[in-house]
Design a protein around this nucleic acid. Structure first.
Lengths: 141, 141
DNA sequence: GGATACTGTAATAATATCAGTTACAGTTGA
DNA sequence: TCAACTGTAACTGATATTATTACAGTATCC
């Protein structure tokens, strides 16, 4: 899995955890353990898809613009990791004479599309809000 | 997805397509569009898991040792790509004070374990034999 | 027995992908 | 006007992936 997906989910959970205010890319990066530029890139994508709002300038940062219980991992997955399951590489060669070699790419592709849908369905059942609860539950223990 | 998985599946379908005899690593590599060493490495793994038999020496090669309709992609996945869904990288830091940062890795890991099981269940429904049929069906069209 | 055609495997080299850093223009608030 | 942000692009370095080369081991055929 695309690690931008992980950063996105972590960031959203963090924002859900402090709904009062904003977090800057530096704060988020510190929390996630990566660098601010990477965070800003991911957040830019989340903004385009309406998950968060940004405020530029001094005192700015990012803020959740949706109810954490309404945002599913499937939403996030679709926004920045859809289709990431299929390997970039395709086996076989359509030009070849062999039945297997010439048609494998297409069949394999269908398999991975199905897998992608399956994965998406699974993510559909997990919300940012639920992940926040789980994180808090771990703390108790 | 691990491209060794793709090579493995393609190779098994190819062997199923010519059940009479064997295929050498060079033939398979040509068909898959990669190099023979890579194929031998993957096949070595498939052999250890009992999917194929090998014969060394002149006239040797690889041969299916199971009914193609009994071998599922889940079997193959478990053999050489299990757990590949989770990114190598983990967000957060258990040492941090923040609830989110310190517990995210664990929660995220649980999510990906679930996703992996989901994927495996999907692959359970696809056999090598079925993929061979699909490949042949494409040819008709 | 010896030549030939394979597998098995390690080591290395080439290439592609991914992540971190630096730099800077644009925006906002005090 | 200054300080603190975001948004991006370009560059660098690290890491992962793939291909290549090389060679020992093994079976077959003559």
């Amino acid at each position: 899995m695309n690690s931008e997906f992980v950063i996105a989910v972590h960031s959203l959970v963090l924002l859900a955890h402090r709904p009062e205010g904003m977090a800057t890319s530096e704060e988020i990066a510190e929390n996630v353990c990566t660098n601010p530029v990477r965070v800003r890139k991911v957040m830019g994508c989340l903004r385009k898809h309406g998950f968060i709002g940004t405020r530029e300038g001094s005192g700015g940062g990012y803020r959740l613009s949706r109810d954490p219980d309404e945002v599913t991992l499937a939403d996030v997955y679709r926004s920045l990791a859809a289709g990431s399951l299929a390997p970039s590489w395709c086996s076989g060669d359509p030009e070849k004479d062999c039945v297997v070699s010439s048609n494998m790419a297409e069949v394999m592709n269908a398999v991975f599309c199905g897998a992608d849908r399956q994965l998406e369905a699974y993510f559909e059942g997990i919300t940012i809000g639920r992940m926040l609860s789980q994180v808090k539950a771990k703390q108790q223990a």
